[in-house]
Design a protein around this nucleic acid. Structure first.
Length: 633
RNA sequence: GGCCCCGUAGCUCAGCUGGAUAGAGCAACGCCCUUCUAAGGCGAAGGUCAAAGGUUCGAAUCCUUUCGGGGUCACCA
């Protein structure tokens, strides 16, 4: 409709305006609900051209459109806005056009380029937490949205299975795990703990002993005992201590932190962990066996969590397998003069001409850093998928700078695909008590949270749900679907780019702008359709439409462009907000218009078809968020 | 300190490629179940869109400055 009007005005612009106009002068907006009309054309851009009052210009364009387009029945000009009233026939035709279209609003599958979406990518030394939930739900949803836009999508993650942090957990487990009566250290099997939780426990254990050792060292230093320490360390400690005199609280804390770092570097524990990393890189069989064993515990644990989240991956990349590749590419770039080597042997790239800094890409000892590995992985992926057009990295916004640098390096290295890669940067999740901090124990564990929301959903659904005749299995599926639907919706309804507040009480709410509110509307429609006995897929007719009915059709007609918008912005929030609007409009209709008890069979069928299309769009929309909708609840 | 992001109702958020009187949900108040699932609907209340300048016929939206909050500036990831 909008494009038809636009073409018509452009084609006839000489006649109407006396000169050729640009298509983007034709601007539409939704008609305000206080005034009559279905579509509004903004008149201001034409006022200058016509050299007349807005009222007059509007009248002229309005008369022209009514004359040319039979669907436009009336028009009204109000303070510079041309409000067009479109016939009921037109809206009914729109409704009929979507009836029975199974994937209404989705583009043809695999009709567009192949895109890889990376998400999750946790460290293997800690269990997943609330932040990972936002990441996973977001990555999964954006993948689904891109698919609905016709892209072929490869979902992936890179597993950070290498590095000093893994060695810390391994070392702590070897040193501090108690032995049971059989002489075994703790395992997921003999403790019943999830693998990721067990490994996480030893990472914390390492930290505890590490800090204690550092503290003891500082106490010695403060007592003047420096036996066995390098004189340089002693000098540095004394320098830092003296610098504290007369400084304010904040500065003192900064200096204390530096002293602590100094002491930490002197601990035997850190030295042991470093030795272990060296052994790992040398493929020491014993260390490798331990590494493999503990990583497999973590993977098994993560698998359970991913299953509960309802996310999946098409392919995985392991840092331990790709970090060497990055090194080769960097050395190649060094040959080509893209990078430069400093005297100590470290390799850098100079990005000052692009307004950034110098960035390290290889350590002086030749080992890889994060950036090295990311370069290698990206190149590797484009080799693995020759038809790949871009990679989207779902990573928190604290890494904005990192990705800016990464893409720039890849571009400088001549990879033409680099400019198509994107960082899907999302904001931090805050708690009412403030930031999540692992040191302060305020981290919300992903497994616990999911269990909590499902438990809450179970309780509330048993209280008010319509569960008659459901098996226990069906009931449990329903409780899970409601709990997880609520959690996903809560995390996805906010613009991903923005930092958000996670309120545990609100996340299990059932009323208002929530997942269960939307699920409930779907269940209600399904119940209605079942009772009607109609397939609700016939071609319908109606000479008049009530406002509430027309409002719903207008929203349904918008759905395809909403999917496009969500894809362009990479924002599930666009889908969530649209669905909420649709459900609100439908509930209003449901409450004010008789459906099953309508006497006029034509009208009744039309309302059923309308309802069925709403249920379909709710389902299609929620699927894009990874949320299931129930037939009953 | 340099760079980046944010500031809209008591709270949580929409709206931001400039367009009519800035919208929802929650909380609080008043209604509506002998019509289909009340996990629902209706009504009323709630705002100097952080502040000040500027551009424009028109600014929450664009530009500048200030204030407030956050992130980032590692041979960590």
């Amino acid at each position: 409709m909008e494009s038809t009007i636009k073409e018509l005005l452009v084609a006839n612009s000489n006649e109407l305006f006396g000169l050729q106009i640009d298509a983007n002068l034709v601007q539409f907006q939704k008609t305000r609900k206080e005034v009559e009309g279905d579509l509004t054309l903004v008149i201001f851009p034409f006022v200058k051209l016509l050299r007349c009052a807005p009222q007059e210009a509007g009248e002229k364009i309005g008369r022209f459109l009514v004359d040319k387009m039979p669907e436009i029945e009336r028009f009204e000009v109000v303070s510079g806005f041309l409000n067009l009233s479109i016939s009921a026939d037109f809206w009914i035709a729109q409704l009929n056009a979507m009836t029975g279209v199974k994937n209404y609003g989705y583009a043809e599958a695999n009709s567009k380029s192949t895109v890889m979406v990376e998400y999750s990518s946790p460290n293997t030394n800690k269990p997943l937490h609330l932040g990972h939930l936002r990441n996973n739900f977001l990555g999964y949803s954006v993948s689904e949205i891109l698919k609905a836009n016709g892209h072929k999508v490869v979902k992936t993650q890179v597993i950070n299975d290498r590095g000093i942090h893994i060695c810390k957990s391994m070392l702590a487990w070897e040193k501090f795990s108690p032995l049971n009566e059989k002489g075994e250290r703790e395992t997921p099997e003999n403790t019943g703990l999830k693998g990721d939780k067990l490994v996480g426990k030893y990472y914390v254990e390492f930290d505890k002993h590490f800090n204690a050792e550092a503290k003891a060292i500082i106490a010695d230093w403060e007592a003047g005992k420096f036996d066995g320490f390098d004189p340089e360390i002693k000098a540095e400690f004394e320098r830092l201590t003296e610098a504290k005199a007369g400084k304010d609280e904040k500065a003192v804390k900064g200096l204390d932190d530096k002293i602590k770092d100094l002491a930490k570097n002197q601990t035997s524990l850190l030295q042991e962990a470093k030795d272990m990393l060296v052994k790992w890189e040398a493929r020491d069989p014993q260390v490798y066996l331990l590494w493999t064993t503990m990583n497999n515990w973590v993977y098994a644990g993560f698998e359970v969590t991913y299953k509960a989240m309802g996310v999946d991956f098409d392919t995985l990349y392991y840092e331990s397998e790709t970090f060497l590749l990055g090194k080769d590419i960097v050395l190649d770039g060094l040959q080509k003069g893209i990078f430069f080597r400093k005297d100590d042997g470290s390799v850098w790239i100079d990005l000052t001409a692009d307004g950034l800094d110098e960035k390290l890409v290889l350590r002086s000892d030749g080992t890889a850093v994060y950036m090295t590995q990311d370069i290698g992985t990206a190149v590797d992926r484009f080799k693995d998928y020759p038809d790949l057009s871009s990679i989207i990295y779902t990573v928190g916004n604290e890494q904005d700078y990192h990705f800016k640098v990464l893409f720039l390096i890849l571009e400088k290295m001549g990879f033409s695909w680099a400019k198509h890669c994107a960082h899907l940067s999302y904001g931090m999740v805050d708690l009412p008590t403030g930031k999540m901090k692992s040191r302060e124990g305020t981290v919300v564990d992903a497994d616990d949270l999911m269990a909590d929301v499902v438990a809450a959903a179970t309780e509330m659904t048993q209280e008010r749900g319509h569960l008659e005749g459901m098996s226990d299995d069906e009931k449990n599926k329903l409780f899970n679907l409601i709990g997880m639907g609520g959690l996903k919706y809560y995390l996805l309804k906010v613009d991903p780019k923005k930092r958000m507040m996670f309120n545990p009480e609100e996340s299990i709410e059932l009323n208002g702008n929530t997942g269960p509110f939307i699920q409930y509307a779907h269940a209600r429609i399904k119940s209605l359709l079942t009772k009607s006995g109609s397939a609700a897929n016939s071609t319908v007719s109606a000479s008049v439409l009530q406002e509430v009915e027309k409002d719903i059709i207008k929203l349904l007609v918008e759905f395809p462009s909403i999917i496009a918008e969500a894809g362009r912005d990479q924002s599930p929030a666009v889908i969530a907000n649209f669905t909420f609007e649709l459900v609100k409009a439908y509930n209003h209709f449901y409450q004010s218009v008789p459906i099953l008890i309508e006497q006029d069979e034509n009208l009744k069928e039309m309302r059923l078809v309308l309802s069925a299309n709403v249920a379909k769009v709710i389902d299609l929309a929620m699927r894009l968020l990874g949320i299931q909708v129930p037939e009953r609840m």
